[in-house]
Amino acid sequence: MHVIEATNLSKTYRLGKVDVPVLRGASLAVGPGEWVAVLGASGSGKSTLLHLLGGLDRPDRTGDGQASSIVVQTDEAAAPVEVGSLAPAALDRYRRDTVGFVFQFYHLLPELTVLENTLLGSIIGKGRLSGLGDERQRASALLESFGLSHRLRHRPSMLSGGERQRVAVARALMNDPPIVLADEPTGNLDRATGESLLDSLESVRGSGRTLVMVTHDERVAARADRVVTMYDGQVKAAPPVEARSGRAG
């Protein structure tokens, strides 16, 4: 069983009057509890792939007769979900409950405190601000596990880059999603902080969570179970690490 099975994904953006194809029949399958790193140069379509997997965007309809699909099955007992065909409300729920996003630039709401940012998904899900005792407890515990217990009432602007990214990871994990999608999570951090964050990400896999991480940093990718590369809008199996190192070197 695959947790994520993306097949033949295409996506073209229109820049002015020019169509820019970003994905050209990309396919990717990710198993349960697997950590997959997607390597690729800037503009290779890594982030677009992540957005499609996370339901932030929808793939184009392909004109070549081959079906384009993203099937997600988080549990063997659960029915597989075709993300591309979800109704808007179901897609909102999918983004809230099934996946957790971690972005390169943290993307925390500057007006909210660390605790409120972490709780955001729960607040949206519950539709209320009160009666979130359990959620608050869980958020506090998560933040504490990331060494942020003293920052609960601070605003993002008062945190360092590493701390912000850890808050973003806590937010992504808050609703206990089976899939975490991380887009260059260490791209804005120094090496030591990045390593520390990767440790945090690694720890989230403890409960069998699937992690798809986009990066252009091979050292970061090396932490993953499996590495794929994006090239010309398609996902290719990555060459062995030694070969990649040689090419990079």
């Binding site: 932030l56 808007p88 972005f103 993307h107 709401l109």
Partner: peptide
């Protein structure tokens, strides 16, 4: 704009 993107990413609906 970015706040709106963040809200949508964590599950906020268009109506919300």
């Amino acid at each position: 704009t970015k706040d709106i993107g963040i809200l949508r990413a964590v599950g906020a609906s268009r109506l919300g």
